[in-house]
Simulated scan of single mutants.
Amino acid sequence: MKSSIMERDERYKMIEQLEQEIKDIEASDVYKAEASFKGDIDKVLKDHNKEPKDLLTIYPSLVQPTKEQAPAKAKGRTLPTKTYRNPHTGDEVEAKSTRHKTLQQWKKDYPDDDLDEWIIKP
């Protein structure tokens, strides 16, 4: 178990590391360019008595589509429903694949039969 003094010292080290990371970011050319750009936009907005949300009404394409607005992703290929009739019992089953529980049981019960021949409605 750590002492509270050790925990405090670790926290101070973490603070120092974060402060150094912030200084490194602020010293980068990328950050300086972005900060300058943001400052220019803020100045233009202030000169025209506008707010950042007003930009979104002028440029709606800046808004990321929400989950409701985003087009629905196409799900995987959908299989057609087929109707199978067991010629031994007369039972019918609707299934999208031969992985259906009843069809699997029929395969076990009648291993020599081909289930594709049992399809009555493709």
Rank of each mutant, 00 (worst) to 15 (best):
M14Y: 05
Y12T: 06
K43S: 08
Q64G: 10
R77L: 12
D29W: 09
K67W: 03
W118G: 10
K107V: 10
P87K: 05
L79M: 09
K2C: 10
I58D: 14
V93R: 04
Q105I: 09
L18N: 03
K23C: 14
Y84C: 06
N49I: 03
G90Q: 03
T89A: 05
T98E: 04
P87H: 00
M1P: 13
Q104F: 06
T83I: 01
Q104C: 07
H48C: 03
A74C: 10
D9R: 04
K73E: 05
V93N: 11
K96W: 02
D113L: 05
T78G: 15
M6N: 15
T66S: 09
D42M: 10
D114L: 05
R85V: 08
E26Y: 10
A72C: 07
L115P: 14
Y31M: 06
L103E: 14
Q104D: 08
I58W: 13
W118Y: 07
P52G: 00
L79S: 03
L18Y: 07
A35Q: 11
T78Q: 11
V44P: 00
I22D: 00
G76E: 02
K82N: 05
D9K: 11
A70D: 00
T81F: 12
H88G: 01
E7H: 11
Y31N: 04
K32L: 11
Q17R: 10
W118N: 02
S61I: 06
T81M: 15
P52M: 00
E94T: 14
E10S: 10
P65V: 08
E7G: 15
F37T: 02
P122M: 02
D47T: 01
I120C: 02
K73G: 08
Q20I: 03
V44W: 09
E68N: 02
K53H: 03
E7Q: 13
S36F: 10
L56E: 15
T78L: 13
D113I: 07
T83S: 00
K13D: 07
Q20F: 07
K53S: 13
P65Q: 09
H48Y: 10
V30F: 14
T81E: 12
N49D: 06
D91E: 13
P65T: 12
P122E: 05
R8H: 08
D91H: 04
E34C: 08
E51W: 01
A33C: 04
I22E: 05
D9A: 09
E16Y: 01
I15W: 06
E19D: 01
P122W: 04
D24P: 08
Y12G: 02
E10M: 09
D29A: 13
W106I: 01
L56V: 12
I58H: 09
N49F: 07
T81C: 12
D42K: 05
E10H: 11
K38D: 11
A35P: 08
D54Y: 03
P80K: 01
R8L: 09
Q20L: 04
S97C: 03
I22S: 01
A35L: 12
V93Q: 13
A74G: 09
S3K: 05
S28E: 14
I41N: 01
M14C: 08
K75D: 14
L55I: 10
